[in-house]
Amino acid sequence: MSGTSQHADRHPLLRKLEGIALFELTAEERAAIEAMPMQPALIDAYQDIVREGDRPGRSFAILSGMASTYKSTRAGKRQVMSYHVAGDVPDFQSLHLQTLDISIATVTPCRIGFVQHDAVRALLRAQPRLGEVFWRATLIDAAIVREWTLNTGRRDAYARMAHLFCELITRLGAVGLAPDFSCDLPMTQPELADALGITPVHVNRTIRDLKAAGLISLRSRHLVVHDWDGLVAAAEFDPTYLHLRGQDQR
C-alpha cells in the first residue's frame, strides 16, 4: 500500500472519486468535478455539520480534516458509525432522503465545500457517468458501516482497535495522507470509545497492548504502524469492503 499520492495536489473530491471509479474519468468529467459550485466553510472541531432530523437542501464534501457520523440515545450516549476523511461526501444520501437520520460532526477543524442539491443534479444530468461513481461512493459508505457493525459486535477490543487503525491508514493512504504507514489520529480516548463500543479505560489499555506487541506507536496524536502485516492479522483486516481501485492492499 502506498502512503503517498502523485495526485496529492488535486481537488480532494476528484482524488476520492478517481480512487473508487471502475473506469478512467475523462478530462471533461474531471473538469466538471473541479468546477462544481462549492460554498467553502471552515468549521471548528467538535461542531455538528448536520444533525439528525435536518432537511438539508445541499450536500457537502470534506476538503480537509476529519469528521464522524454518529447517532445518540435519548440519554446522550453516542455511537460513532464511521469516520470521514478528505474527499468524502458523508451526506450524499440527503439528495434523495429528505430527512437525515444521522448526525455528522467535525473531529478536527475542517474545510468543507457545500454544494446545493440542484447543482449536484445538474452535474449528474450533464455527466451521467459521474452518477455511477457517486452511487458507488454511497454504497461504499454503507459497506463501511456494515464492517463497523461486525467490528463492534463480534471482535474483541484488541481486534476492534487494530481494525480501525488499518482502515484509517488504508483510506488516508488512498488520498495521500498516510505516508509510511503513519497518520494523524486526532480522536481522544473517549471519542475512540464511542467508535469502538468500549470504555475509555479499555481504550487506554488496548492501545498499550498494541504498543507492547510492537505493532504501533502513538505519540502526540500521531499513529505510526511498525508492523503492518501484524496489525492486519490482529484485526482480521480485509480491505475488500473499501472497494479501492488500483491500490496495493497488502
Rank of each mutant, 00 (worst) to 15 (best):
3 G>E: 01
3 G>D: 01
3 G>W: 11
4 T>D: 06
6 Q>I: 14
12 P>H: 15
14 L>G: 01
16 K>R: 12
17 L>R: 04
19 G>Q: 15
20 I>H: 02
22 L>P: 00
22 L>M: 01
22 L>V: 04
23 F>S: 14
24 E>C: 03
27 A>P: 09
30 R>T: 06
31 A>C: 06
37 P>I: 04
42 L>V: 02
43 I>P: 05
44 D>T: 09
44 D>W: 00
45 A>Y: 09
48 D>C: 11
50 V>W: 04
50 V>M: 03
51 R>E: 02
51 R>K: 08
60 F>I: 06
61 A>R: 01
62 I>V: 10
65 G>L: 02
65 G>Q: 02
71 K>H: 03
73 T>A: 11
75 A>H: 07
80 V>F: 02
84 H>R: 03
89 V>G: 02
90 P>C: 05
91 D>E: 10
92 F>K: 02
97 L>I: 03
99 T>I: 15
100 L>M: 04
104 I>D: 06
106 T>E: 06
107 V>G: 06
107 V>A: 08
107 V>F: 06
112 I>R: 00
119 A>K: 11
119 A>I: 10
129 R>K: 11
131 G>P: 04
134 F>M: 09
134 F>R: 04
137 A>N: 15
137 A>W: 01
139 L>Q: 12
140 I>Y: 06
141 D>K: 11
141 D>G: 15
148 W>G: 07
150 L>S: 08
151 N>D: 07
152 T>W: 08
154 R>L: 14
159 A>G: 07
159 A>N: 07
162 A>R: 02
162 A>D: 11
163 H>N: 12
164 L>Y: 13
167 E>T: 12
169 I>R: 07
170 T>L: 11
173 G>Y: 03
174 A>I: 05
177 L>Q: 12
180 D>C: 10
181 F>A: 13
181 F>T: 01
181 F>V: 07
190 P>I: 06
192 L>C: 12
194 D>W: 15
203 V>N: 00
206 T>G: 06
207 I>L: 12
209 D>E: 07
220 S>A: 11
221 R>F: 01
222 H>M: 05
222 H>D: 06
229 D>W: 08
231 L>E: 00
235 A>D: 04
236 E>Y: 04
236 E>Q: 10
237 F>T: 04
237 F>R: 01
238 D>M: 05
247 Q>E: 14
